[in-house]
Amino acid sequence: MNVMIAARGALRFGDLLGNIPAGVAQGIIWGIMALGLYITYRLLEVSDLSVDGTFTTGGAVTVMLILAGWNPFAAVFVAFVAGMAAGTCTGLLHTLLGIPAILSGILTQFALWSVNLAIMGFAANKALNVSKYTLMISSRNIQMAIITGLIIAAVLIGIMYWYFGTEHGSAMRATGCNPEMAKAQGINISVMKVIGLALSNGIVAFSGGLMAQFQGFADINMGKGAIVIGLAAVIIGEVAGDAIAGKKLNFAGRLSFVVVGGILYYLTVVIVLWLRLNSNMLKFFTAIIVAVFLAIPNLTNYSKNSFSRAGKNSLKYVNGKEN
């Protein structure tokens, strides 16, 4: 069996078009997840790996509560709170116990594997009977799913724009930008980091709850690689934002492009699948996409600022002639 190609047959453009809406809907949900990641990755300047666990936690909590007869809106709210609790754990491991942030996230993620299984009654996945419940968002109705997803993203962007413009939110941004300065202004940076990690993971768990509803089940592996997909959305969104709107984009605009980044990422996934590439190779391609986009700012900098170019320029001085 060919490693790269999953199945043979002619590529039909119609198939690609048919799969785009579902890709957009999932992209929006990952974009919402990336909004949560943006708080830690961009504003607090912490790489938080707990999200792989909290995304699943959100999905598991949501599905179990809906199965128990809860309203889906109430269920994702509880998922949000559960994510905040997990984020608080990461924050306390980091600030109270002095464990490096990246390791704190890994520890939380590791522990959440067991917690998530326990939430699902020690089953690796739990399905929702989609026709039995009225869900917020479902792959049964892609058009509605896209509209609902966009409304949720817009409301979330509005809330984030407001919060990070308040005294409290600006103190959090100062903590990420310059902790020494923040302390000199009387800001308790430990508390700020814990709150930031809690909010971030709350949003990630919330998006996990949306994803579980969309696909109709929660799976212990659904959050695997969430950090990478979230980063892909943040970075693709920033590159796209700079290219389309320039550097003048305000905070709400930049957040909007994070969601756009999630959509763009998922469309590449749709194309990869349409090309009949083996979907088991998807993580490999995702890693390449993220690495390329992470490298773009550095590569453009190298091209402007390289030793080899300086060396070439130096030749005309060394050789004493203009050429």
Partner: peptide, 30 residues
């Protein structure tokens, strides 16, 4: 000179942070 200010924030945001030095940060506009 890099230590005393938050470089990714605006001049007025930095001043507003300093104007609230040692005070409780609320959810009022900055």
């Amino acid at each position: 000179p890099m230590m005393g200010t938050a470089t990714t924030m605006q001049i007025e945001e930095n001043l507003a942070l300093a104007a609230r030095r040692g005070k409780t940060r609320t959810l009022r506009w900055q």
